[in-house]
Design a protein around this nucleic acid. Structure first.
Length: 531
RNA sequence: GGCGGCAUAGCCAAGUGGUAAGGCAGAGGUCUGCAAAACCUCGAUUCCCCGGUUCGAAUCCGGGUGCCGCCUCCA
């Protein structure tokens, strides 16, 4: 079984062969920090989170770089509007971004570089392009001469003539050719500037990614990802800059995720239908958002609807319930997600220190040999999961296998409960595979007990350590008094014993009206907060 | 105008040559005092339409219709 990845460059699935055996260098374009992140960002970042986790699961040592663009027109505009500095805006929204990422349970990248910390590298890259005549200075600006780079348009499948039709020159720009793009922008009054050989100014957007990817991953590396909208011009320009400067092939596999539409409309500021991660997390469990995203293939567009998100929440309940039952049966006792920090050169990032540790399965755990000879192993979850993920990270199919396994496990547990089956061997193996697999997808970051306790309440914490914290237990948030519930359950139990079904049912109905569901099990009555 | 994508059951969705995964909703059943949860059974003779290639197509080719994205900042 080999991993195949759809490469935007060739528009085909290709067998994944990293430059260096056992190692993967991966760069993903992160946010421009000028506003809160929304569901679209969440989708992108979750898609690459799972790709990262899966590569780790396969045993690769992954160096995962995700940048933060902390100097940009939009940041400057916002700062001017708010009467503050660009640096302050960037600092603030970098913090907000990190809170969202931690809340979503994302693994922390190996390095998270930002543009303003890499001015020397950026300037060196521009100088090199100038020396090699791929760039030219015009006033205090420096532009990349697109027509001098032979391969331009290869990634986005455009030719120069087509591009020319859509190109435009902003007032004040001094491009020699409308297709050219800025590597360095001369500072205007009131803008933050850095010194450079061309005078005070700031880097263009594209050049930071070329400089920083090279700094951490080298001139040539394995995977570069981002949203589909970045294909042109951002990634096209990155290729031009990087390959012109180094003379080496830039990236082997380009991966781009599809967009999220909101209730059949494109999410956009002008339509006023931005759904922020923060807003979602006030009512949806972070792993339900993850499940919602992973239920669709990463390259396809998603149309968000509240109904579908609610469905994801239901499915998450089911998976956690299955895990809980396995735990109670003494199977799958393993903690869902053994914390295992990402391999590779950590700690070089500019930001991101002190955040929650990534929750990754250990490669050893998942590569442990399966017991021989059992039928369950042959058709087991883990091989099918890998088969699905190996086909261009087909998380939707992988989830289908996960649900299949859950149903089989629940069935086995039912039979066991009736004294039917025995819980040894294959069942234990499948149970383990179930929890492991969910972990690779970034699910099961809490224990079932914790999950059901907090179920339905995910109040965003604006203060504190940056992780998701609930505003209290679900009971408190809904004005439910646990002790009182227990008392009512005892009262109902007494009623049931004297076969006073009327009283018993009335108590149950009253509690249900307050959002509490009772379940009578052989071991007694348990209660849960309704979703 | 140019480039690209998508169209699969009531809804969501996987599947790119070998006879339609999975989930939600719905119906019936097992269990239960009744429920809930879990489990079992049931749903597309068919994959937007029309041609074609093939022993065989949801999957390939041609044409058509519809929807969407990018081409300007955008995940």
């Amino acid at each position: 079984m080999t991993l195949r990845i759809f490469n935007t460059l060739t528009r085909t699935k290709e067998v994944f062969v990293p430059r260096e055996a056992g190692k993967v260098g991966m760069y993903v374009c992160g946010p421009t920090v000028y506003d809160l992140s929304h569901l679209g960002h969440a989708r992108s970042v979750l898609a690459f989170d799972v790709i990262y986790r899966y590569l780790c699961h396969l045993g690769y040592q992954v160096t995962f770089v995700r940048n933060i663009t902390d100097i940009d027109d939009k940041i400057i505009v916002r700062a001017q509007r708010e009467g503050t500095t660009a640096a302050e805006v960037a600092r603030r929204f970098t913090g907000e971004f990190h809170r969202d990422m931690a809340a979503l349970g994302l693994a922390v990248p190996t390095v998270e570089p930002c543009a303003t910390q890499h001015l020397p590298a950026i300037i060196r890259l521009i100088e090199r392009l100038l020396q090699q005549q791929f760039a030219y200075q015009a006033g205090g600006d420096v532009y990349f001469a697109v027509k001098r780079f032979a391969g331009y348009g290869r990634l986005s499948k455009r030719n120069l003539d087509e591009l020319l039709a859509g190109a435009r020159v902003e007032p004040g720009e001094q491009k020699a050719d409308p297709l050219d793009f800025a590597l360095w922008k001369a500072g205007k009054p009131g803008e933050p500037v850095w010194d450079s050989p061309w005078g005070p100014g700031r880097p263009g957007w594209h050049v930071e990614c070329s400089a920083m990817s090279q700094a951490y991953l080298g001139a040539s590396f394995d995977i570069h990802g981002g949203g589909q909208d970045l294909v042109f011009p951002h990634h096209e320009n990155e290729i031009a800059q990087s390959e012109a400067a180094t003379g080496q092939p830039f990236v082997r596999y380009w991966i781009h995720n599809g967009f999220v539409n909101l209730e059949h409309e494109k999410m956009s500021k002008s339509l006023g239908n931005i759904l922020t991660i923060r807003d979602l997390l006030s009512r949806i469990h972070p792993e339900a958002i993850r499940l919602f995203v992973l239920a669709h293939h990463y390259r396809r567009p998603i149309d968000y609807t509240a109904e579908q998100m609610a469905e994801a929440q239901k499915n998450l309940d089911y998976l956690y319930l299955t895990w809980q039952r396995l735990e109670e049966a003494g199977l799958a006792t393993l903690p869902g997600t053994p914390p295992e920090p990402a391999a590779g050169p950590g700690g070089r990032g500019d930001v991101g220190a002190g955040r929650a540790a990534p929750l990754l399965p250990t490669p050893e755990a998942v590569h442990a040999p399966m017991p021989d000879g059992t039928a369950a192993t042959e058709a087991g979850l883990l091989p099918r999961f890998r088969e699905a993920m190996n086909e261009d990270f087909n998380t939707a199919l992988a989830l289908a296998h996960l649900f299949d396994a859950a149903r089989a496990l629940n069935k086995a547990l039912d039979q066991q409960g009736r004294g039917g089956g025995d819980g040894s061997g294959p069942l234990a193996t499948e149970a383990q595979a179930f929890v492991t697999t969910a972990g690779v997808l970034g699910l099961f970051q809490q224990s079932p007990a914790e999950y059901f306790r907090r179920r339905g309440t995910f109040v965003y914490a604006y203060e504190g350590t940056g992780g998701l914290s609930t505003g209290g237990s679900a009971e408190i948030a809904r004005g439910i008094d646990g002790a009182e519930v227990e008392r009512l359950i005892a009262e109902r139990q007494a009623a049931r014993q004297r076969r006073d079904w009327g009283t018993a049912d009335r108590i149950r109905a009253d509690l249900l009206a307050r959002g509490i569901v009772l379940e009578d099990t052989p071991k007694g009555t348990v209660w849960k907060v309704k979703g």
